[in-house]
Design a protein around this nucleic acid. Structure first.
Length: 224
DNA sequence: TCATTAAATTGTT
DNA sequence: AACAATTTAATGA
Protein backbone atom coordinates (compact mmCIF):
# COMPACT_ATOMS: atom_id res chain seq x y z
CA UNK A 1 0.00 0.00 0.00
CA UNK A 2 1.27 3.42 -0.83
CA UNK A 3 -1.57 5.91 -0.51
CA UNK A 4 -4.46 6.90 1.70
CA UNK A 5 -6.80 5.59 -0.98
CA UNK A 6 -5.12 2.18 -0.75
CA UNK A 7 -5.61 2.17 3.01
CA UNK A 8 -9.29 3.03 2.70
CA UNK A 9 -9.68 0.28 0.12
CA UNK A 10 -8.71 -2.35 2.71
CA UNK A 11 -10.48 -0.71 5.66
CA UNK A 12 -13.77 -2.49 6.22
CA UNK A 13 -15.50 0.49 7.80
CA UNK A 14 -14.91 2.48 4.62
CA UNK A 15 -16.58 -0.03 2.29
CA UNK A 16 -20.18 0.96 2.78
CA UNK A 17 -19.57 4.65 3.28
CA UNK A 18 -21.80 7.00 1.27
CA UNK A 19 -19.89 8.79 -1.46
CA UNK A 20 -19.95 12.20 0.18
CA UNK A 21 -18.59 10.88 3.46
CA UNK A 22 -15.91 8.87 1.73
CA UNK A 23 -14.88 11.91 -0.27
CA UNK A 24 -14.76 13.91 2.93
CA UNK A 25 -12.50 11.34 4.59
CA UNK A 26 -10.20 11.38 1.59
CA UNK A 27 -9.93 15.13 1.37
CA UNK A 28 -9.63 15.91 5.08
CA UNK A 29 -7.17 13.16 6.00
CA UNK A 30 -3.50 13.36 5.15
CA UNK A 31 -0.45 11.14 5.28
CA UNK A 32 3.04 11.61 6.61
CA UNK A 33 6.22 9.59 6.26
CA UNK A 34 7.78 8.56 9.57
CA UNK A 35 11.41 7.47 9.74
CA UNK A 36 12.39 4.21 11.42
CA UNK A 37 12.59 4.72 15.16
CA UNK A 38 10.64 7.98 15.07
CA UNK A 39 7.72 8.71 17.36
CA UNK A 40 4.47 8.75 15.39
CA UNK A 41 2.77 10.28 18.39
CA UNK A 42 3.62 10.85 22.01
CA UNK A 43 2.11 9.89 25.28
CA UNK A 44 0.48 12.87 26.95
CA UNK A 45 -0.14 14.95 23.85
CA UNK A 46 -3.55 16.20 22.81
CA UNK A 47 -5.36 13.76 20.59
CA UNK A 48 -6.41 15.46 17.38
CA UNK A 49 -6.48 12.56 14.93
CA UNK A 50 -7.46 8.98 14.38
CA UNK A 51 -4.39 7.29 13.00
CA UNK A 52 -3.94 4.62 10.35
CA UNK A 53 -0.95 2.69 9.08
CA UNK A 54 -0.82 2.97 5.30
CA UNK A 55 2.45 1.15 4.98
CA UNK A 56 4.96 0.00 7.57
CA UNK A 57 4.94 -1.26 11.13
CA UNK A 58 4.47 0.59 14.41
CA UNK A 59 4.23 -0.41 18.04
CA UNK A 60 2.14 0.91 20.88
CA UNK A 61 4.43 1.18 23.88
CA UNK A 62 5.38 3.05 27.01
CA UNK A 63 8.37 3.30 29.26
CA UNK A 64 7.62 2.51 32.89
CA UNK A 65 8.70 4.80 35.72
CA UNK A 66 11.76 2.61 36.18
CA UNK A 67 12.65 3.11 32.54
CA UNK A 68 11.70 -0.36 31.37
CA UNK A 69 10.06 -0.38 27.95
CA UNK A 70 6.61 -1.93 27.90
CA UNK A 71 5.26 -2.93 24.52
CA UNK A 72 1.50 -3.32 24.26
CA UNK A 73 0.84 -4.28 20.68
CA UNK A 74 2.04 -3.90 17.14
CA UNK A 75 0.03 -2.46 14.29
CA UNK A 76 0.83 -3.37 10.71
CA UNK A 77 -0.29 -1.96 7.37
CA UNK A 78 -4.05 -1.56 7.23
CA UNK A 79 -4.55 -0.96 10.94
CA UNK A 80 -6.14 2.00 12.70
CA UNK A 81 -5.72 3.10 16.32
CA UNK A 82 -6.26 5.89 18.82
CA UNK A 83 -10.07 5.81 18.94
CA UNK A 84 -10.02 5.23 22.69
CA UNK A 85 -8.30 8.46 23.55
CA UNK A 86 -10.26 10.27 20.85
CA UNK A 87 -13.60 9.19 22.30
CA UNK A 88 -12.67 9.92 25.87
CA UNK A 89 -11.19 13.34 25.18
CA UNK A 90 -8.14 12.50 27.21
CA UNK A 91 -4.44 12.93 26.48
CA UNK A 92 -2.86 10.02 24.64
CA UNK A 93 -1.82 7.26 27.01
CA UNK A 94 0.99 5.66 25.05
CA UNK A 95 3.76 6.34 22.60
CA UNK A 96 3.58 5.08 19.05
CA UNK A 97 6.97 4.25 17.60
CA UNK A 98 7.67 3.42 13.97
CA UNK A 99 9.68 0.21 13.85
CA UNK A 100 10.58 0.88 10.23
CA UNK A 101 9.99 3.72 7.82
CA UNK A 102 6.21 3.97 7.71
CA UNK A 103 3.55 5.95 5.92
CA UNK A 104 1.00 7.10 8.49
CA UNK A 105 -2.50 8.47 7.82
CA UNK A 106 -4.06 11.11 10.05
CA UNK A 107 -7.81 11.61 10.14
CA UNK A 108 -8.81 14.83 11.91
CA UNK A 109 -11.06 14.57 14.93
CA UNK A 110 -13.91 16.42 13.20
CA UNK A 111 -13.89 13.89 10.38
CA UNK A 112 -13.84 11.05 12.87
CA UNK A 113 -16.81 12.57 14.70
CA UNK A 114 -18.71 12.99 11.44
CA UNK A 115 -18.26 9.29 10.72
CA UNK A 116 -19.38 8.49 14.22
CA UNK A 117 -22.53 10.55 13.74
CA UNK A 118 -23.46 9.31 10.30
CA UNK A 119 -22.15 5.83 9.61
CA UNK A 120 -23.54 2.78 11.33
CA UNK A 121 -20.84 0.63 9.74
CA UNK A 122 -18.21 2.85 11.28
CA UNK A 123 -19.74 2.51 14.74
CA UNK A 124 -19.89 -1.24 14.34
CA UNK A 125 -16.26 -1.30 13.33
CA UNK A 126 -15.22 0.72 16.36
CA UNK A 127 -17.11 -1.54 18.74
CA UNK A 128 -15.55 -4.58 17.12
CA UNK A 129 -12.07 -3.08 17.30
CA UNK A 130 -12.41 -2.00 20.92
CA UNK A 131 -13.71 -5.45 21.78
CA UNK A 132 -10.89 -7.24 19.96
CA UNK A 133 -8.28 -5.11 21.66
CA UNK A 134 -9.91 -5.75 25.01
CA UNK A 135 -9.73 -9.47 24.37
CA UNK A 136 -6.11 -9.12 23.37
CA UNK A 137 -5.18 -7.32 26.56
CA UNK A 138 -7.15 -9.72 28.71
CA UNK A 139 -5.10 -12.46 27.13
CA UNK A 140 -1.94 -10.67 28.17
CA UNK A 141 -3.06 -10.28 31.76
CA UNK A 142 -4.44 -13.78 31.90
CA UNK A 143 -1.21 -15.46 30.92
CA UNK A 144 0.66 -12.75 32.73
CA UNK A 145 3.57 -10.94 31.29
CA UNK A 146 6.35 -13.27 32.34
CA UNK A 147 5.49 -15.90 29.78
CA UNK A 148 8.07 -18.06 28.22
CA UNK A 149 9.48 -16.35 25.16
CA UNK A 150 7.65 -18.70 22.79
CA UNK A 151 4.27 -17.89 24.32
CA UNK A 152 5.08 -14.21 24.33
CA UNK A 153 5.99 -14.24 20.68
CA UNK A 154 2.92 -16.33 19.84
CA UNK A 155 0.71 -13.77 21.55
CA UNK A 156 2.45 -10.95 19.76
CA UNK A 157 2.06 -12.61 16.36
CA UNK A 158 -1.58 -13.47 16.97
CA UNK A 159 -2.20 -9.80 17.70
CA UNK A 160 -0.43 -8.68 14.56
CA UNK A 161 -2.38 -11.06 12.37
CA UNK A 162 -5.86 -10.39 13.74
CA UNK A 163 -7.90 -10.44 10.52
CA UNK A 164 -10.74 -8.45 12.05
CA UNK A 165 -8.50 -5.55 12.99
CA UNK A 166 -6.30 -5.47 9.92
CA UNK A 167 -8.15 -6.15 6.73
CA UNK A 168 -5.18 -5.70 4.45
CA UNK A 169 -3.08 -8.42 6.06
CA UNK A 170 -3.14 -11.89 4.64
CA UNK A 171 -1.55 -14.91 6.22
CA UNK A 172 1.96 -13.65 5.76
CA UNK A 173 3.66 -10.45 6.82
CA UNK A 174 7.09 -9.12 5.99
CA UNK A 175 8.65 -8.55 9.39
CA UNK A 176 12.24 -9.15 10.41
CA UNK A 177 13.17 -11.04 13.56
CA UNK A 178 14.77 -7.85 14.81
CA UNK A 179 11.41 -6.07 14.53
CA UNK A 180 9.59 -8.94 16.23
CA UNK A 181 12.09 -8.65 19.05
CA UNK A 182 11.22 -5.00 19.56
CA UNK A 183 7.52 -5.83 19.50
CA UNK A 184 7.62 -8.75 21.90
CA UNK A 185 10.34 -7.34 24.10
CA UNK A 186 12.78 -10.12 23.28
CA UNK A 187 16.27 -10.21 21.88
CA UNK A 188 16.63 -11.08 18.24
CA UNK A 189 18.41 -14.28 19.19
CA UNK A 190 15.54 -15.34 21.40
CA UNK A 191 13.03 -14.50 18.68
CA UNK A 192 15.01 -16.67 16.31
CA UNK A 193 14.83 -19.62 18.69
CA UNK A 194 11.20 -19.06 19.61
CA UNK A 195 10.21 -18.87 15.94
CA UNK A 196 11.77 -22.26 15.36
CA UNK A 197 9.76 -23.76 18.21
CA UNK A 198 6.55 -22.30 16.79
CA UNK A 199 7.48 -23.50 13.33
CA UNK A 200 8.18 -26.96 14.71
CA UNK A 201 4.65 -26.95 16.14
CA UNK A 202 3.29 -26.02 12.69
CA UNK A 203 1.86 -22.75 13.94
CA UNK A 204 3.90 -20.56 11.60
CA UNK A 205 6.24 -20.77 8.67
CA UNK A 206 9.40 -18.72 8.88
CA UNK A 207 10.48 -17.12 5.63
CA UNK A 208 13.37 -14.84 4.84
CA UNK A 209 12.35 -11.46 6.21
CA UNK A 210 8.84 -12.55 7.07
CA UNK A 211 6.44 -14.88 8.80
CA UNK A 212 3.41 -16.82 7.59
CA UNK A 213 0.72 -17.82 10.07
CA UNK A 214 -0.55 -21.36 9.65
CA UNK A 215 -2.80 -21.68 12.69
CA UNK A 216 -4.03 -18.42 14.18
CA UNK A 217 -6.23 -19.99 16.85
CA UNK A 218 -3.43 -22.18 18.11
CA UNK A 219 -1.17 -19.14 18.24
CA UNK A 220 -3.71 -17.26 20.35
CA UNK A 221 -4.02 -20.12 22.81
CA UNK A 222 -0.39 -21.13 22.84
CA UNK A 223 0.89 -21.78 26.32
CA UNK A 224 3.76 -24.08 25.55
C1' DT B 1 19.15 -12.79 -18.97
C1' DC B 2 23.13 -13.55 -16.30
C1' DA B 3 27.03 -12.48 -13.21
C1' DT B 4 28.77 -9.46 -9.70
C1' DT B 5 28.31 -6.73 -5.70
C1' DA B 6 26.22 -4.52 -1.78
C1' DA B 7 22.91 -4.60 1.81
C1' DA B 8 19.79 -6.86 4.81
C1' DT B 9 18.61 -10.74 7.47
C1' DT B 10 19.42 -14.95 9.66
C1' DG B 11 21.94 -18.60 12.32
C1' DT B 12 25.17 -19.44 15.81
C1' DT B 13 28.41 -18.65 19.53
C1' DA C 1 27.45 -8.39 21.15
C1' DA C 2 30.06 -10.29 17.46
C1' DC C 3 30.72 -13.02 13.41
C1' DA C 4 29.76 -16.06 9.49
C1' DA C 5 26.38 -17.70 6.29
C1' DT C 6 22.46 -16.88 3.53
C1' DT C 7 19.03 -14.32 0.82
C1' DT C 8 17.57 -10.47 -1.68
C1' DA C 9 18.00 -6.32 -4.48
C1' DA C 10 20.60 -3.52 -7.51
C1' DT C 11 23.75 -2.87 -11.10
C1' DG C 12 25.65 -3.35 -15.50
C1' DA C 13 27.29 -6.12 -19.33
Amino acid sequence: MRTLRDLLAVSRWAESLPDDLRARVESESFTRLCAAGALVCRKGERVEHWIGVVDGLVKMANVSAEGKPMSFTGIASGGWFGEGSLLKEEPRRYDIVALRESTIAYMPKVTFMALLDRSVAFNRFLIMQLNERLGQFIGLVEHDRLLRPEARLAQCLAGLFNPLLYGGIGKSLPVSQEELGQLAGLSRQRVNQALKVLEQASLVRVDYGGVTVLDLDALRNYEG
